[in-house]
Design a protein around this nucleic acid. Sequence first.
DNA 1: TAGCTCCCATGGGTAACC
DNA 2: CCTGGGTTACCCATGGGA
Length: 422
Amino acid sequence: MSQVFALVDCNNFYASCEKLFRPDLKDRPVAVLSNNDGCVVARSKEAKTLGLKMGVPVFQIRDQIERHDIVCFSSNYALYADMSARVMSVLEQEAPEVEIYSIDEAFLNLTGVSHAEDLTEFGLRIKHKVHQWSGISVGVGIAPTKTLAKLANYAAKKYPATQSVVNLMDPERQRRLMALVDVSDVWGVGRRISERLKSQGIHTALDLADANAKSIRKEFSVVLERTQQELNGLSCLDMESIAPVKQQIVCSRSFAERITDKPTLQQAVAKYTARAAEKLRGEGRVAKSVQVFIRTGLFNNNDPRHVGSLTSRLATPTSDTRLLMKATDQLLNKLYRAGYRYAKAGVMLSDFFDPHHQQMDLFTPTHNSKSETLMSVIDSINHKAKGKLFFASQGVTPQWLMKREQLSPAYTTNWNELPVVR
DNA sequence: TAGCTCCCATGGGTAACC
DNA sequence: CCTGGGTTACCCATGGGA
């Protein structure tokens, strides 16, 4: 039986979240910056109209920001996550099956819904209800495959006449749209692959759909072959409503200022280790493999360069912050070289196990419940009082913390931070 | 038993996505 | 001077059994 997927995607999500709580900024250009206030990662409609580009470093467009009086925000992930949850809960009320694909988009499985209601009507209803309940506006694309649903969503955003809802169930309509869409705008086709496709005369989504399947497989990959089949209405990608178990956890960050000395770098690595361990416990797992990486700046640097990473395999997998910190500190000791200006460091955990049926070895004392208790006490305190409890090795007043100079208040998650309005 | 192929695990690198 | 963070999947080379 043929399937029906919808893709619901929030418009300018981060910028919309910031605007929601600042009605005074209605109709004003707003930009949201990446961690460290480094790049532009989201723009309001007005900012896009002004030609503000996605991903550009802020220092390169200071004058543009000044000239047009663009309001900039540091990213406030807690706010976006909370708004996302509100949007998703509306979708979950309306659709029989929801796959939360990212913070601002979700696939709905509408297979079987089609008889009860016209699909376009369904899309419009969802759009209205999400807006009514969360204040966020969304686009809806409906199609027989996920890739086509993405494409329909792209059209819903691009063409205002659609009222932000596009029903792409009809094959003729699919082909008409695909002829207008650049291959690079197809889901799964990035920069490199679109360049290679274009050198072979494949310029539009339709060109890709009609290309020779054998040669796509041979010269590119199974992944692109699947994309091609999906463009032709053959569903290869199913709903993944249950989140797959994580295979790795990374915690890394650029520093506000370059770090040259080892003790400071040690603090940073300790902090990232603590955060990664916390995430690991949140997943209910233990890790056997621990990696640390450090690197100097990436761009226009006459500075000496150093990138390095080292991995250690623990005798026994663990989620105990103390043991993981011991490991990462040893790795950093081997990795660190004096005389470099480090810009970023990170900790990666992988090779996960279920702590309750764990492979023991002969020489290490067995899993102790003291550690488990201590860690869960730390986690529950930090859950209530965010990050108030930490290890001394993380440093008490770190100077290298990321830059977040334009952070908005925690409107939805911390009542105490709300600005006083009279 | 030397030598061959096949298969699988592993690890580094690339590309994609949001 | 100042350029994000996190995750997965795949490809390919390698090397050790069977």
